[in-house]
Write a protein that binds this DNA or RNA. Sequence first.
DNA 1: ATAGGGTTAG
Length: 593
Amino acid sequence: MGRSQPATPQKQLVASSISSHSPVYQALLRAGPRLKPLQQVHAHLIVSGTHHNFFLLTKLILLACTSKSAIYTRNLFIFSIKSPDSFIFNNLIRISSKFRFPRDALFFFRRMLLSRIPPSNYTFTSVIKTCADVAALRLGSVVHSHALVNGYGLDSFVLAALVAFYSKCGKLRVARKVFDKMPDRSLVAWNALISGYEQNGFAKESVELFNLMLESGTIPDSATFVSVLSGCAQLGALELGCWVHGYVLQNGFPVNVVLATALINMYARCGKVREAREVFNQMTVRNVVTWTAMISGYGIHGYGSEAVELFHGMRACGPPPNEVTFVTVLSACAHAGLVSEGREIFASMTRDYGLIPEVEHHVCMVDMLGRAGMLDEAFSHIRKLTKPAPAVWTAMLGACKMHKKLNMGVQAAEHLLALEPKDPGHYVMLSNVYALAGRMDRVEMVRNKMMMRGLKKQVGYSTIEIDRKTYLFSMADKSHLETSEIYRYLDDLIRRIGEAGYAPAKDSVLHELEEEEREYALRYHSEKLAVAFGLLKASNGTGIRVVKNLRICEDCHLAIKFISDVTHREITVRDKLRFHHFRDGLCSCADFW
DNA sequence: ATAGGGTTAG
């Protein structure tokens, strides 16, 4: 029957005769995703007259795209492929999106629409992923409607991609809405939203969703654990973090590098640096992120020499440190007063690794020199910079406050306020510098300026985890069920530490308040409330772990030292910058923070 | 052929 057909397209005949066993196809496979070999095979196709073969051209262009040769791929697309089919379009879009060539992915998508080839769920997932990569909210929303119109409103792949997309754009409410409407939620959809919450700072929501996931009977995987552990790290939720670790081990889930690194980070940020090191030691494969997480862990606990030692270990037998590694090790030096070590490490950055110091490294250097009381050196470090970033001046101002250097502090603050006139934190700092110098007239002036500009001090709060639940306290908080008990207990504690020699450090309260209000405000700072609650609730012998969103104040620091002494309890406070381990009336930061 | 993951200064 085939014979009786008119001799229609020679092409078709050739196409059918070329299979995946043919020598040319094998040559393409051998070439793989490499530009030069592909072009050689291409030349061979032309010479042998098979360069119109659709099957071969499809393989060629997809390999070209995989080889990341964007120009060659586009040329093949424009000049060699007469009428690309949906398979070619979908794969070009997918590969371009996978290798982060968003412009190409969108180019092919537009061409697909212009060719009137209907996009499929494959098309939409890749295009949405591309929109997520470049956080193109408007475009992504248009593609979303497009997907709905094309009948993919219930497709689990498309919807999972949309959840990830809205999460990446910070639109968690929309992401949640899409997620809630999914008829059957895939593991990836759960993971995308859990990660979305965590990445956008909504650790609590992330953990809550994880619990819903378990209740729904969906089995989590390593990506789930990684996001939840990051959430635990954010929250300082050690109990939950330990539970996740146990769950992973008991159920025999494989612990890969990323998961182990997330565990290190969780333990370190929950105050358990020894446990973090244990995970680190047990790993067989460690990459630069692993090492950096461990060094950072030591740093935030004030264990500068351990951080430096590990850094040298990394130099000797680990992967090359990257710019993040240097930030963490320099910060560790700054917090531990390791000036000469820090200087040497800073120098090695460019000398040994060809890394150019960025703003964050300069911030660490200024912080390090400034904390150590070497304010002139810190200042001259700034002067060497062509355009000092605000953060550098923030570090300088912090050092001036610490060492009560009024003139230099005012100078730093002036630079800072010129650069960032809307940051309330800078005004607070400056007013504190004036207060410490006894210039109450100036304190008043800064406060007025702040009010006139409609700026408000950031609200401080502290959290504490009891029985895998996190409780939040703000200053003079009375929203808790056991408020009266907590206040009674705290008042009694303050009486006891008063007998032991504690006197409120009234200077450390923000001078927005009148004299008689100050002591009251200090007395019921969120961290004190959280500590009191912890002492009431946590069983004897266990440590108290509090997380504060801002830096701990001078008075709370002093009070908690006394509290650790009179109650014989270990108290850990993680503030915005680092850990304070209080024990027997002393703090691990040695009052150097 | 489809979607999700770990480290960063003040």
